[in-house]
Design a protein around this nucleic acid. Sequence first.
DNA 1: TTAGTTTATCGGCAATATACGATCTTTAAA
DNA 2: TTTAAAGATCGTATATTGCCGATAAACTAA
Lengths: 111, 111
Amino acid sequence: MQRTLNSLDYAADEEIISSIAKALAHPVRVRILKLLDGETCCFTGELTELIPMAQSTISQHLKALLESGLIQGEINPPKVKYCINRERWRKAEALFGAFFGEGSGCGKFNE
Amino acid sequence: MQRTLNSLDYAADEEIISSIAKALAHPVRVRILKLLDGETCCFTGELTELIPMAQSTISQHLKALLESGLIQGEINPPKVKYCINRERWRKAEALFGAFFGEGSGCGKFNE
DNA sequence: TTAGTTTATCGGCAATATACGATCTTTAAA
DNA sequence: TTTAAAGATCGTATATTGCCGATAAACTAA
């Protein structure tokens, strides 16, 4: 599939924005990120207690978030601690801010 | 606030964020939004000249963007003029800003 | 070694997304 | 009326998501 797509090369920022947006495109993943962001930092699979979904499903969502770069996990033998990848998080903030904001750094004024 | 209730009970903001993120989850749609945002305001299907995809495909992406509320179109007989829905745009800016930023209005400080 | 805990991965199924060409639909112009 | 143009929509093929239960994998503790 996507034959024409290959000839269209997107700006790097457009690719990053859409890949991060993809990670945010499911409410459960937004919820997970909020939970992880809320903690001072790391967290773990108490997620399965907070979110009424099968453990395998949550694991899959975590995988999607890992692939987006928004979170990272450190293996702690029987457990895994997940936390926000702050560097990526700031990158996302900057990209989305620039995308929607457009304005003068902080607080746009058009209209 | 609510805690873990029904399996389908997300906070309103989580729903909105994920629905907007869904609209941004494809690089072509990000590109389209950029083009529309770049113009003083409205635009039209010169998109089909700027983007090497079938007209029907672009039309579908526009439909997705319409459904997200990020753009609106005014029918102008043979043509249709699309433009950013500024109200929704600002809402998106605020939501994503709060989501990623968390910081004091403008310029976050947590590391 | 065996058993238990935590998480990842597999297999399967239904639903959605993506892309295309073909075909309406609408309206203006010939 | 016929023709042309701009878009939307339809039909269809394939890819990707999302969910689950079952099972594998990694490690600890007994």
